[in-house]
């Protein structure tokens, strides 16, 4: 039987990460690795893009890299 994924890519999960600290797209992708969510790479990119568009996080550059963050 397939083991249930231990990580879920949801709006609430993304929100919690971005409230905690600013993250790059790569940081976020690391939190939702395909082997942990059970999603394909394409699904991960599409779902994460939809969630970020909806959350519309603040952006700032840290070390020349764009980071997203949310305030409560």
């Amino acid at each position: 039987t397939p083991s249930s994924s231990d990580v879920q890519l949801t709006e609430e999960a993304v929100r919690r990460y971005l409230i905690r600290k600013p993250m790059t797209t790569k940081d976020l992708l690391k939190k939702f690795q395909t082997k942990r969510t059970g999603l394909s790479s394409e699904q991960t990119v599409n779902v994460l893009a939809q969630i970020l568009k909806k959350l519309n996080p603040e952006r700032k550059n840290i070390n020349d890299k764009m980071h997203f963050y949310l305030t409560e």
């Binding site: 790059t24 797209t25 790569k26 992708l29 690391k30 790479s41 991960t44 990119v45 599409n46 994460l48 893009a49 970020l52 568009k53 952006r59």
Partner: peptide
């Protein structure tokens, strides 16, 4: 692999660029 992560990050940023 890190190159797959790079590709995914690039794809995600490309999707978001239309929006941002």
């Amino acid at each position: 692999s890190s190159s797959e992560a790079d590709e995914m990050a690039a794809a995600l940023e490309a999707e978001l660029n239309d929006f941002m």
